[in-house]
Design a protein around this nucleic acid. Structure first.
Lengths: 228, 228
DNA sequence: ACCTGAACACCGTTCAAGT
DNA sequence: ACCTGAACACCGTTCAAGT
């Protein structure tokens, strides 16, 4: 990435200045490289060959940058056929949403860190809510269900992608692996945790996601049956 | 909080040194005062009338401190009657868990930031899993359901307690209030979002929590009925 | 219009040294 | 055993100044 400063008022077409889309793209690349915790304004500036304060010409502050990243992460989600039954549409949307969050490192954490706004993200929300209304949910239930679905997917992916604690040093500490975690439990205590240890940490994420989605939609569907 | 250094090897009973419980208590107080983002090692040290490096004698690092805080937050949760039916026990545990997370500022964020460990927290998990197993769920389903319940409560409280964005400056920016947020939507687009705006932001949290818990447990219960 | 230099007010953490 | 001083390697952000 090479650029040059142009003189004030002189629109030098051969030396285009940095613009916001380029900043966002660089930030997305940096996010994939170093994760959300490593994404700093200073490192982003370095990547763009400018000094950190220059970034504030293109974005209001770091929070604004994260909002823009959230929007970019929600872009290019494939929307379901509007002729499908509501449940299948919502299932498809949930899977697409998860896919989008997994596509970039710490995508779920980025989404969780900013208030939902932006056309891409709102379009997803709109579609979920529309399907719930079409299904026959009351306005209250549709709104509450929308929260649940959004929260479920976001939290699921955050957990799914949470890196396991590293040993860091040879010292004693919190368990470094899931295996070590369960073995650290005193044998007599927490018998259920021990009994379920395999499944608590298999991290067969796809299977677990389908399970969760089914439970959630079953629970929602039951409210429709109760009414009609 | 006043203390004095004691001479090396001299156990001066009248001048007790700082110990870990005192550090934790001060950290909890500081958390309530300034929130998770304001909780820094340096401020905590200041509150304890020591210098920041001294803290590392009592806790391994900030992450360790947060683990200790998570444990403290999970303490003093009232456990349900073990004679109650599984669903009522889990409902009671969910409400207690939420209550504990709400009891301290940013409690949910603290819990979400550390890997689950510690006796208080494990006891809650153990009880949920035990009830699911008693209810007749397979080991796999019980484990997955445990995740869902934990994630639901944690995410719910995080959202419930997320402070609304402040105006900060007079400039244009992300919406500052929920009211402003929905009014900023272009009228033609996102009709469902607009139609549900009241319920998307009423933040009648208690009602919404009960709704979510019922949906979740209904969805889980359906899997039992399908089997027997 | 867009970028830099210098500065402010912070962070977590280490490590030798004090008592 | 417990604490301090000094330092390292960072942060986000502002603001006057450059071109």
């Amino acid at each position: 990435v090479t650029r040059r400063a142009s003189l004030w008022g002189v629109q030098s077409k051969s030396e285009p200045a940095l613009d916001q889309p380029q900043v966002i793209q660089a930030a997305l690349d940096l996010l994939d490289e170093v994760g959300l915790d490593g994404l700093t304004m200073r490192r982003l500036a370095e990547k763009l060959d400018i000094k950190a304060p220059s970034l504030y010409w293109h974005v209001r502050n770091k929070d604004h940058l994260l909002s823009l990243l959230a929007e970019a992460i929600c872009a290019r989600t494939h929307l379901p056929e509007s002729t499908l039954p509501w449940r299948q549409q919502i299932e498809a949307l949930a899977h697409e949403y998860r896919r989008a969050l997994l596509a970039r490192r710490d995508g779920a954490r980025v989404l969780a860190s900013v208030f939902p706004s932006g056309t891409n993200r709102l379009r997803l929300i709109e579609l979920v809510l529309r399907n719930l209304l079409n299904a026959g949910f009351s306005r209250r239930d549709a709104a509450y269900a929308g929260f649940m679905l959004n929260d479920f997917v976001t939290m699921f992916v955050m957990e799914e992608t949470r890196p396991i604690e590293q040993p860091a040093n040879g010292q004693e500490g919190p368990p470094t692996t899931a295996q070590e975690w369960v073995e650290g439990l005193s044998p007599g205590e927490y018998p259920s945790v021990r009994a379920l240890a395999d499944h608590l940490m298999d991290n067969n994420a796809q299977e677990r996601f389908v399970f969760g989605l089914e439970v959630l939609l079953d629970g929602l569907e039951r409210r429709l049956i109760g009414k009609s």
